[in-house]
Design a protein around this nucleic acid. Structure first.
Lengths: 226, 226
DNA sequence: GCAAAGATAATTTGATCACAAACTATTGCT
DNA sequence: AGCAATAGTTTGTGATCAAATTATCTTTGC
């Protein structure tokens, strides 16, 4: 019989699901360097599980564009490439403006308070130079807002985009720290409070442009046009 | 050593990949009824392979929204729901108009000939009442056009949408035949020839509206609001 | 000295098995 | 009859192993 801890809350949920969540978080928030090769057995050993659940989790992450499968049957974190960043930038603008717009229609007063709260946590992360904290807060802020659009399908597509630039973001901010980061959510919050669609669009586009733009510049600086 | 035919082109490509492609095609072009439950062993027996490759393929298809995983750990073709259709409709409009617009910028003369050719095949399918032929032609037409946008990421997202309404489309057209279907690609081709962005947008929106609208009406008629 | 060829190691892939969870059908009780 | 408990079946999950494939190292021939 396999012993299962009664303390941990992850009883009943399959191992491959746990592995999936762990790996996805790690990719999303920059726990892997872009281009890093991973192996099933390596991940299995590292996570203390057998190879089987890792296989399923990795297949899933490949399908979600979080991992890259090469012709050699090898798996890696997608490598850096400026064209990809531009594509993601363009797609984010298109999809997230739409999501925010739809969310605004359903937004309650208390939702704004929640977002305010998340934004405060982001401020703390920025002050303390906590890059991962900033990334987590940023993710929470955006997807809490988008969740109010009730467009599950679009949200899934956008999450698909976010995992793709997570590694890059951590890479460039890991170098420069949080100094170059500024909180772009203040004007978004103002727009939400005054229920101003146009202002919200502008705020979002600015936020996306800041994030993607900085990644883009850092990459072209390093000369990684691939 | 296991003998592998040298005639078939699928030498070297893993079984789980072949299973994935087969299942995806079948879902995309309506080979399964919406809501149909599938089992790993069932599919394995049907395809004449062991359960392991099916597991990987199914896991992948779930991640791509082609299959649905329930809390019971059971897998099925996603069931019909009018809200989902509306969401897909909205998302398609947003993404496919963008893709077509980008494609128009890179479109060569010979591409138009290819599209013309595909359109002719669609006409044949419509005349002979070949629903699956129409669906395949329709898919080819759209994604050949989109491929010229060179926006691989967006294309992947849109493919994600198409697998989700494949089963529905076959369901409603399977009932009424190709009689209610008309070729909406003629005006799109005209717009492409004259390189008219606005006309192309209109043609695409009309095409999408026709497809999604008919599914929507059929569903509300049957009263499947879920 | 170096490139091609061969041997070795690491990794993916596919099959099989044991087990647990979920579903189905049957039985037994009020 | 209607419902609950139960036994039997089906199915997903995870582990293990063998075969096939790819990468890495070593040797050989020039």
């Amino acid at each position: 019989m396999t012993f299962k801890s009664a303390v941990l809350p992850d009883v009943g949920i399959p191992v491959h699901e746990q592995v999936y969540r762990q790996l996805r978080e790690r990719i999303l928030f920059g726990g892997f360097l872009p281009g890093k090769a991973v192996t099933l057995r390596g991940l299995a050993d590292e996570l203390g599980v057998s190879a089987m659940p890792v296989r399923e989790a990795v297949r899933r992450l490949i399908a979600e564009n979080a991992l890259e499968l090469h012709g050699n049957r090898r798996v890696s974190i997608p490598d850096v490439c400026i064209d990809i960043i531009d594509e993601i930038w363009s797609a984010r603008r298109l999809l997230e403006v739409e999501l925010a717009s739809k969310a605004l229609d359903n937004l309650e007063e208390e939702d704004i308070l929640v977002l305010q709260d998340i934004d405060d946590q982001i401020d703390v992360a920025l002050e303390t130079g906590d890059v991962e904290g900033y990334m987590r807060g940023n993710y929470e802020f955006h997807f809490y807002l988008y969740s109010k659009s009730h467009s599950e399908i679009l949200i899934k597509l956008v999450k698909n985009l976010w995992v793709q630039f997570g590694p890059f973001m951590r890479l460039v901010y890991g170098r420069s720290g949080t100094a170059n980061l500024e909180d772009q959510h203040k004007q978004a919050l103002e727009a939400l409070k005054s229920r101003d669609q146009n202002a919200l669009n502008d705020a979002l586009e600015a936020d996306i442009a800041q994030g993607m733009g900085f990644i883009r510049e850092s990459l072209s600086l390093v000369g990684k046009a691939r």
